[in-house]
Design a binder for these strands. Sequence first.
DNA 1: ACGAATTACTTGACTAATCAACTATCGGTT
DNA 2: AACCGATAGTTGATTAGTCAAGTAATTCGT
Lengths: 158, 158
Amino acid sequence: MASIQDEIKQTRPFPSPSAEAVVALMRTADMVRRSVASVVEPAGITPQQYNVLRILRGAGEAGLPTLEIAERMIEETPGITRLLDRLESKGLVTRVRCDKDRRRVWCRITTQGLELLRQLDAPLQKADEAALQALGNHDLEQLIELLDKARDVYRRIS
Amino acid sequence: MASIQDEIKQTRPFPSPSAEAVVALMRTADMVRRSVASVVEPAGITPQQYNVLRILRGAGEAGLPTLEIAERMIEETPGITRLLDRLESKGLVTRVRCDKDRRRVWCRITTQGLELLRQLDAPLQKADEAALQALGNHDLEQLIELLDKARDVYRRIS
DNA sequence: ACGAATTACTTGACTAATCAACTATCGGTT
DNA sequence: AACCGATAGTTGATTAGTCAAGTAATTCGT
């Protein structure tokens, strides 16, 4: 095979639109992740811990079993147990073994956790908007639709 | 189509299109990241290490100084030194202190590193396409455009 | 030409993520 | 009732990522 062709292929920015989209997606997600981190980390928690707290707030009084939380996380999290350990030791979450099914552990957000979330709500909302400020409402809806569509197929594989 | 709200069983609606887009973005990026990981990890490297190798292949014979690599990474990487340590100990990268400016260290990909990349090229390309198979070329271009637009403004902030 | 500021990393200490192996419990089978 | 497989989580060992402080080399201002 002609080596020049190889060189051209290697020099060309992206071998396919998919490859370019993957890189664009990862770069954008990284920027947004850092934006979120810059808001929640001063409060002493990581974005993942914040995500857990928000899930538990959404779950209400009853709370959720450990692995249910893992399923609802934005990013897949095999280390959910230790994530909860840290939140518990900070007093933001409590855990109680279930009586009906003693394998389960119900996790609940504490008042302190709710208060922390309450303080982060507005800044977080601001950060989300700032991160995507370049996109108008029409753009945002289009973006959401495209991302949902991408995941819809992918979900069937995994 | 499954919306994010169904996916994470969220009971409340998103407070804004931005917030929903942020979550959609992170979830999609996470799926794609795992897809990439499933291809490169059997070869004994992480996605970030793969990213470094690809950057160094693109840089050619001369290689690149350490922090130049960091700047080109898809995801910001403060731990670039140790990332390169691991690649060096695997024999995929070599490092030589620069004579003109002895603060700098030039990093180059080895033949072994190039061979590894060569083996991963096709599967990776396939994984990228599989991850975004739901999107046609028009969708992909639209997605890339939206993501680029989002980052363009955000870049000026940071 | 000399000190201060900058650049380009490196290192140490700490925290977090990952994978596999393990324990405990439950639900059904026979 | 005893067993089997599945479920729900935990733990240990290893690896990776993060932040702050440190070192060495260079450049810039006067």
